[in-house]
Design a protein around this nucleic acid. Sequence first.
DNA 1: ACCAACTCCGTAAACGTTTACGATCGTAGT
DNA 2: ACTACGATCGTAAACGTTTACGGAGTTGGT
Lengths: 338, 338
Amino acid sequence: MKGIRQLAEHLDVSIGTVSRALNGKPDVNEETRRRVLEAAEKLGYVANQSGRALRKGATGVIGFMMQTGREITGQGDTFFMSVFDGVQAVLARHKLDLVALLCSSEEDPDDYLRRMVARGFADGIILSATRRHDPRFEFLARHHIPFVTLGRSLTDVGQPWIDLDFEAMAEQSVERLVGAGHREIGFVWPHGDLNLGYVFIERCRQALARFGLTLSEHNIFRTTPSEMGGYRVAREISSVERPPTALILVNETLVTGLYRGLQEVGLEPGRDIAIIGRQSPQARFLSPSLTGFDLSLRDLGVALAEGLLSTMTTYAERYPKAARQKLWPMTLIEGESG
Amino acid sequence: MKGIRQLAEHLDVSIGTVSRALNGKPDVNEETRRRVLEAAEKLGYVANQSGRALRKGATGVIGFMMQTGREITGQGDTFFMSVFDGVQAVLARHKLDLVALLCSSEEDPDDYLRRMVARGFADGIILSATRRHDPRFEFLARHHIPFVTLGRSLTDVGQPWIDLDFEAMAEQSVERLVGAGHREIGFVWPHGDLNLGYVFIERCRQALARFGLTLSEHNIFRTTPSEMGGYRVAREISSVERPPTALILVNETLVTGLYRGLQEVGLEPGRDIAIIGRQSPQARFLSPSLTGFDLSLRDLGVALAEGLLSTMTTYAERYPKAARQKLWPMTLIEGESG
DNA sequence: ACCAACTCCGTAAACGTTTACGATCGTAGT
DNA sequence: ACTACGATCGTAAACGTTTACGGAGTTGGT
């Protein structure tokens, strides 16, 4: 089936009627509508994306921007796959489709987004891996593109965002570790301009201060947010003069390499060094089991989508109540590691 | 900048000239072209996706289909991200963009693909998680949509594919284990209709036969391709009357859970039970280190893209040599586990 | 019998781009 | 001076859809 025209003359009605029937417009006879729907189904007709988008000025597509290749976020694939599922559950109710806009490691992410937006590829954008200074925020705001971010930034422009509650995580972690007698606590801070690192370390500093402790530079371990990054931290710890007795990881992916590294230098999590991190499908099966923060990824996706829709004029009235900016709660699951 | 019309009258030339200048058409004065390019850059003009696609009958977009939510493929975190990067390296040379078409867990994948194709969303499709019987193959062939698959299927329609060389993996694994004296070898087979399981198990059967051994049903462990799936296998092994002395895993993700499960029942990989699996960023840091098959994911992505382009008339002449159907080699990296 | 109101449907314009076609101008060859 | 030709550009049609507008037919009220 090539187009609406073929479908129309096959049914012996005008293309206008066919279009109205398919789009649920009121002024079309119910019998006619039934025939049109039936024929469209049988012949497998689906309205052409480009024609429809051109005329309507909207694509019906929401883009979730990600970067391929390099380790960027320190989140695993299953992290995003679960979030996607929640996003889609909401979008599907409005006949919106979600696609992942994949920015190659060879292209600048800011340029990539500019290009996609200028092309009019998507009606709305979801950003992740937000940086401390993120030019994408201003750009999207300036061009009035509805968007929502998974993560905050100093360049906040009032758009909806949802971010993991790293503040609460920092506080609870520090409280728990200090309560267990730890005084030298190490913090693993992923390289790069990712915003979450700054938020996390700052709140840790404050939490320590409440116990009269200071966060000294030698207890901050900067590394890449990958398994290898975690491994390097372990080796570094073993070679430092006054190693921390506890470690807090803000990333998901680091912990696998860290465990291996610690084992190689003869340190057992939970016995020789306390570890608090983030739960993940892998972390569940570490040994000793990880003490870490868990969250509902699918619900997070739902909230993201609702936040986005609340900024889109077409759907806004149905999502007025969506919390525009929200820290997403995480709950500590106690394991053997700390 | 709204459209080519504004840009044209700002430069005081016709829209035809602007279009030709931007698209690198020959019959435009070099000085004019320079002015157009400059103005477009300065004003941030990028041709509207819908208008261009409508007129050209091509979108310039390649879609990589994935399913969100559920564990499907048994590939780990960075598997696809690395493949994407290779795909993009090739596509970028032809100004093609890669997006991930995300099929919600609530929608039937076959329906989803139909919908996307009928809408004319992408000029070409890359399929993964191919099933033993995969209706998507016929559908795409019937509609003359260029596509390539990561994985084979019984429903092969002659399209290019690339698949991991599970045959070689099966043979080498069996050879190695039998050579080390193992007679009872277990095979972990992921649930579902995924094609790779069938290919793998069949070749294992053949390899065993060459040593006069038969693959008995009680040595096939079917489970979900997730960490939890691996964990369950370990528990199952411990409860079975005659447990295998070696285990071969065709999936990436299983191994984390398996290790934990084995440890809980007091079995150490490499000492009490031999394990051969697949390398991955996580597997590198398992302890004891995994003996497993590794591959170049980025190059695999490059090959996939080349295979796809060789079927697209616009690009085919530049990729005539692309191997149309190819088993992708994996190399065994020896670890402590088997 | 007439008019109003309503239901249903066809017509045609518009969305932003690309490209076939033809027009214009200058240059060179005879 | 005439023709041929190449270089450059403008014009307009086309892509497939949605939708404002208006027309035809029917109903119902007076």
